[in-house]
Design a protein around this nucleic acid. Structure first.
Length: 412
DNA sequence: TGTCCACTGGAAGGGAGGGCTT
DNA sequence: AAGCCCTCCCTTCCAGTGGACA
């Protein structure tokens, strides 16, 4: 059979291109390296707490705080990995571990369902009463007679989205040990957001954060060390031009010392260089990578937005595009209602739109701040948070939005 | 100093879409 | 099939509020 020629060429070109990466996976955020520079203190503390598992004890619950990309998740995974290894080495029962990212597993029911599947019980996606799922989990865990360490990553997301039920589940989980005869549970909670404690039941806070570990942002120098370490195993020797690592570190340090961002920059810069067929990664590639990363994350978020959120965002976009001096909830709602009328769609209430604006703010697409204009009331002052043309370009791909693309809002 | 605006954001609840148990 | 229970998205209702203005 003759093969397809153009594709052949692409593959061959790829193979012929100079090899930039030795192992690109080590530059991904999920990779757990053998050493974590500048996190020795945190590793020691978490390690000391979890060590009691080696003597058959129940480690205290731990809370890890710090902004994104400060190494919370990776430290937790690193310590757990080594703990398990030690358990095997000393012939101690290896704890069951469960890692749950609450941004994805974002309801109490789903958290419990996830825990069930980690102890080998399958439960339906929906349908059962939450209590039943909890009981199933408790029973089958108790049958195992083992320690279970549960990592709840981005736990603030769970609490933010369902305050009542999240409190219930967390309360139950922190008390579960008193109803277990043969097994024990330890919880590692991870959060980006310190303020989220305000939404938690005080009893949950106290038992969840028996121990607390704080992760400060990395400085530019620390980021540099991390990048150098990963670059050694990730890139072939000599492909990184002088200054590339410094630039990645500097750019990421500007964003509250985010190591994930730094690694992404380095990886994407490498990928761009590879695509170009260049045999060196240069500072120019890093700059391009920065643009590409922003564009990718923004467009992915925008494309998956539900239509109502798109319309609200588009209303804000139109107001900003036509140079409204300031944008408030009321203005947005008025434009939004007009757009809905043109599209012959039912419009949501202002209460809901107000929430949607908050959601857009959380996604980083807009900035919304509550301000008071004195006599003229309290409202949200809203600004677009990403490049304006990007929003227009991507939203107008939606045929419904395209239908109102030329709408000109009345500016007051 | 009090008033009052334009909202905010909490609380409760409805109903559609899903799936369980009996 | 009936009776529950779940989530998700939304509405309705309403007390609360920061600060410009009279």
């Amino acid at each position: 059979m003759p093969t397809e020629k153009p594709l052949d060429r692409i593959f061959e070109q790829f193979l012929a291109a100079p090899k930039i990466f030795k192992n690109r996976d080590v530059l991904r955020p999920t990779y757990v390296p053998d050493e974590l520079p500048h996190r020795e203190k945190q590793i020691t503390k978490v390690g000391m707490i979890l060590a009691s598992a080696l003597r058959g004890g129940t480690p205290s619950n731990i809370f890890l705080y710090g902004k994104t990309g400060t190494g919370k998740t990776v430290v937790a995974q690193y310590v757990l990995k080594h703990l398990k290894e030690k358990c095997m080495e000393f012939n101690v029962p290896v704890p069951i571990t469960s890692y749950i990212n609450c941004r994805i597993v974002d309801t109490s029911y789903r958290v419990l369902a996830h825990l069930c599947s980690d102890v080998g019980v399958s439960v339906p996606i929906t349908g059962l009463p939450t209590d039943t799922v909890y009981d199933k989990f408790r029973k089958s865990l108790d049958e195992k007679g083992q320690l279970m360490i549960i990592v709840l990553d981005e736990i603030d997301q769970l609490v933010r989205k369902n305050r009542e039920s999240a409190n219930d589940v967390l309360y139950d989980l922190t008390r579960i040990n008193s109803s277990l005869e043969n097994s024990k549970v330890s919880i590692i909670g991870i959060s980006n957001d310190l303020k989220f404690k305000d939404h938690l039941d005080p009893r949950v806070i106290s038992s969840l954060s028996e121990e607390e570990v704080v992760f400060p942002p990395y400085t530019a120098d620390e980021l540099k060390d991390i990048l150098i370490q990963r670059a050694k195993i990730g890139f072939n020797e000599g492909v990184l031009e002088y200054g590339v690592i410094n630039l990645c570190a500097a750019l990421a340090a500007r964003e509250h010392g985010d190591a994930r961002r730094a690694l992404d920059l380095l990886r994407v810069a490498g990928e761009i260089a590879e695509r170009e067929g260049s045999n060196k990664v240069t500072e120019k590639h890093v700059r391009l990578a920065q643009k590409e990363i922003e564009k990718d994350t923004v467009s992915e978020v925008l494309e998956t937005l539900p239509i109502q959120s798109k319309l609200v965002l588009f209303s804000i976009y139109l107001l900003e595009k036509h140079r409204a001096s300031e944008i408030n909830t009321g203005d947005v709602y008025a434009v939004y209602q007009n757009l809905c009328r043109y599209l012959r769609m039912d419009s949501l209430t202002q209460r809901r739109v107000s929430d949607i604006i908050n959601e857009l703010d959380m996604l980083g697409l807009v900035y919304a701040r509550v301000i008071s204009r004195g006599r003229y009331g309290r409202t949200k002052r809203i600004k677009i948070g990403v490049p304006l043309n990007l929003i227009g370009d991507i939203l107008e791909k939606d045929p419904r939005i395209k239908g109102v693309a030329d709408y000109v809002p009345r500016i007051t």
